[in-house]
Simulated assay, not measured.
Amino acid sequence: MIEQNDIIIRSWEQLCEEVYHDSWKPEMGRYRSDYAFRGLSDLNYELKNSFLRNCGEKPELEYHLLRNFRKYSINSDPRLTRTFWRALVLAQHHGLPTRLIDWTYSPFIAMHFATANTERYDTDGVIWKVDFVKVNQLVPSPLSNGLAEEKCNAFTVEMLEKIVSLGDFDRLFTDNQVLFFEPPSLDERIVNQFALFSVMNNPTAILDEWLIQHPDLYRRIIIPKELKLEVRDKLDQANITERVLFPGLDGLAKWLKRHYKPVS
């Protein structure tokens, strides 16, 4: 369904203009976007985290998932799971259902994820564009104080590690809230995807519902199905592909599988 904050793209040129809309910073004399991007192959997909999709309305299961992940991840570097924040990032990175949602600083990587699924070329795609700077300014102190002290716009894991448990994190807020933070550089995939995570203080909250209550913080860029193939081909030419975003043989195979699939 088309909403008030939706922009329907009619050309590649308009798409490129739209993702960089409002990125000019006159005080700096530079283009510096305050937006995080998330590309989805289907316009109707919700911004549900993987924990909610997997476990439903059972928030009590989150603790046990993460506890057992930390317990049995014996082959990983113990420094990667020494705090629950690091364990949460590592778990998300390896496919465990968590309350985190993947975002990127790069609008072109978001375009990739909106167009990579060839089974969805009969469906309009979407790029969510969220002003993470304004979102993070809404968090209560002492969290907000950390951003001011560090003179940055996104949280880091190091800044969040003062909060020692998910329960403590949830109790900082009186209502549903979201913040954006940068993961540590676990491997090339996180680095190449220019990754950013959102996290809410409720594992079963749906980010769409929160954003709708804050319409000044987001836009949705709709990529019509008729335009997807053109966008996809131009991204391939620009080397925004699985081969780069998923370094290794798995990413290479995914790229080749899609690249040589005949258009139906």
Results as ranks from 00 to 15, higher is better:
139 V>Q: 08
140 P>F: 04
145 N>A: 08
136 N>G: 14
175 D>G: 13
158 E>H: 00
171 R>Y: 02
169 F>A: 11
132 F>Q: 13
172 L>K: 00
173 F>S: 03
130 V>D: 07
136 N>Q: 13
139 V>N: 06
157 V>E: 11
138 L>S: 11
176 N>E: 09
175 D>P: 15
165 S>K: 01
156 T>S: 10
175 D>V: 13
143 L>E: 02
162 K>P: 00
130 V>C: 09
171 R>V: 00
139 V>Y: 04
140 P>L: 07
153 N>Y: 12
150 E>F: 13
147 L>G: 01
143 L>Q: 01
131 D>L: 08
158 E>Y: 00
178 V>K: 01
160 L>D: 01
148 A>E: 15
159 M>P: 06
131 D>W: 05
140 P>E: 09
166 L>G: 11
160 L>P: 02
156 T>Q: 02
165 S>F: 05
139 V>K: 01
164 V>Q: 11
137 Q>P: 02
164 V>W: 03
167 G>E: 10
143 L>N: 01
157 V>P: 08
178 V>G: 04
164 V>M: 10
173 F>G: 05
176 N>A: 04
136 N>R: 10
158 E>M: 04
178 V>R: 03
146 G>L: 08
147 L>R: 01
136 N>Y: 13
137 Q>G: 09
170 D>C: 03
174 T>P: 05
152 C>R: 10
167 G>M: 07
160 L>C: 04
167 G>F: 10
177 Q>P: 02
132 F>T: 10
160 L>H: 01
152 C>G: 07
149 E>K: 09
133 V>C: 15
161 E>K: 03
157 V>I: 11
171 R>D: 01
162 K>N: 03
155 F>K: 12
172 L>N: 00
168 D>V: 01
164 V>K: 11
171 R>G: 00
173 F>D: 04
150 E>D: 09
130 V>M: 12
168 D>Y: 00
151 K>F: 14
133 V>R: 15
139 V>C: 03
136 N>F: 12
140 P>K: 09
146 G>P: 02
131 D>N: 14
161 E>P: 02
148 A>Y: 12
132 F>S: 15
135 V>N: 10
148 A>W: 12
154 A>L: 10
